[in-house]
Nucleic acid binder design. Structure first.
Length: 416
RNA sequence: GUGGCUAUGGUGAAGCGGUUAACACUUACGACUGUGACUCGUACAUACGUGGGUUCAAAUCCCACUAGCCACCCCA
């Protein structure tokens, strides 16, 4: 029995990988327009970093982390998300002394021990961005606009923006208490899960999928009515900036976050096309996190998107690169000439293919067609004798004789 | 961690107790013209996830295991 891969760890094969490259290249291009620089941090960190930042009581920390003890008796964890490691690096490398505003983006694998399903894997990939040092709500809007810009560039209209505010350490506890009180009144109408949630995290009851809970929480108090003045003003400003820049969004006051560090603005890009995994990208403000991790008292905001989920939205296959030229050679001497010309043209930057096995001309033509080559250069004994190869345009079958040298071939390949 | 569904070649699949395990695609070679697509021919599963059981007879029925998918929980 051959060795198989690990459950929930996938191979990304040619044909699919082109889509990933496009997503990554688009992210780099768009994020850099907005002044973000890439940062690369390790995929493992001390376990403590994640329990401190994400929150001890969250599902991620409680049951989904790939944690183990290394040979030096250190507790380490394969990162389940990107923000914690980036913030650790930010603090450790004292990036804030270089510039009061830091804009970073990252991409790479994350690991969560969950049951795999559509759009959810144990090794999955995120592209994320973080801004540290700006409290002004314009940066919230900026980040959202950038995210929308990214999806536009990919030609996707589907994920739509939803925003909410979770308040701050001042006003959230008050809201939480108000919500809990409301839920207590309706205890009978709630599902078992929600009754449990009432204690651990009452906000979760708001996005429960059980129909009965939806009805029961229909008139539940909204966070947005419980924001303190500062949070309320902040959220209003974010919306104003989105309106002014004509960025489409909707307010979803029932939106909840799974990580503890979020404050004030939170958002998700959601789609109905991915089964139960509706969130394609999500993020928010985390004003207390950096200080919590032992860094300076600086605000932050960021998001992460799931690359697998974005790839699922990109219709069709990523298509493979097609050769500019296939050189079909008939006979040993012609094969040598084909190889020489191929090397020359590759040096000029053309994608050139040929047959390595000395197969029949027919086979070679078939392969040229299969690969989708735009042109095929045919070289046999006659062509070798005259020094003129036949260049065939595969689309219409027309042929012209051309000298067997790099520059005339390069010229022919460049036009049309 | 909990449910449901499914497991036949490189792929999509037929098969419903006795068949040489269909068919299509892919791949390879060949015919038509030293030159692709269309057409045609030939080849490609001692084998039906693994292990047991029932039966004269199992890919087909039963059980267990494993894997995959989807959903719940939760999340990007």
């Amino acid at each position: 029995m051959a060795i198989t891969g690990i459950k929930g760890f996938n191979d990304i094969l040619p044909g699919e990988v082109e889509k990933w490259q496009r997503i990554e290249a688009t992210a780099r291009r768009v994020f850099e327009i907005y002044g973000f620089s890439e940062i690369r941090v390790p995929i493992m960190e001390k376990t403590e970093l994640f329990s401190r930042s994400i929150g001890d009581a969250t599902d991620i920390v409680e049951k989904e982390m790939y944690s183990f003890t290394d040979k030096g008796e250190n507790r380490v964890t394969l990162r389940p998300e990107g923000t914690a490691g980036v913030m650790r690096s930010f603090i450790e490398q004292k990036l804030h002394v270089l510039d009061p505003v830091t804009k970073l983006y990252y991409m790479g694998p994350m690991f969560r021990y969950e049951r795999p399903q559509k759009g959810r894997y144990r090794q999955f990939h995120q592209i994320g961005a973080e801004v540290v040092g700006v409290t002004n709500p314009r940066i919230d809007a900026q980040v959202l606009i950038m995210l929308c810009h990214f999806f536009q560039e990919l030609g996707l209209t589907e994920p739509t923006l939803q925003i909410n505010s979770l308040g701050c350490p001042e006003c959230r506890p008050l809201y939480r208490a108000a919500l809990k009180e409301y839920l207590e009144q309706r205890r009978e109408e709630l599902c078992d899960d929600c009754r449990r949630r009432m204690e651990t995290n009452p906000l979760r009851a708001l996005d429960c999928k059980v129909p009965g809970c939806g009805v029961a929480t229909k008139d539940a108090p909204s966070v947005l009515d419980h924001l303190c003045q500062g949070c309320d003003d902040h959220f209003a400003a974010v919306r104003r900036h989105l309106d002014v820049t004509k960025t489409p969004y909707s307010v979803n006051h029932r939106m909840v976050r799974g990580l503890d560090y979020y404050t004030r603005t939170t958002f998700e890009l959601v789609t109905g096309l991915l089964g139960s995994q509706s969130a394609v990208a999500a993020g928010g403000r985390y004003d207390g996190l950096i200080e919590e991790l032992g860094g300076p008292k600086l605000p932050g905001i960021g998001f992460a998107m799931g690359v697998e989920r974005v790839a699922l939205l990109l219709s069709g296959e990523g298509f493979a690169r097609v050769p500019d030229l296939f050189i079909a050679a008939h006979g040993e001497a012609a094969g040598d000439e084909a190889f020489r010309l191929m090397t020359l043209l590759q040096g000029e930057g053309f994608r050139v293919e040929l047959d390595y096995e000395g197969k029949s001309l027919k086979s070679q033509m078939r392969r040229a067609d299969k690969l989708g080559a735009r042109f095929t250069l045919i070289i046999g004994e006659d062509e070798l004798a005259t020094g003129q190869g036949m260049l065939k345009a595969m689309a219409d079958g027309s042929q012209v004789a051309l000298p067997l040298a790099a520059s005339p071939l390069a010229a022919a390949l460049s036009c049309s």
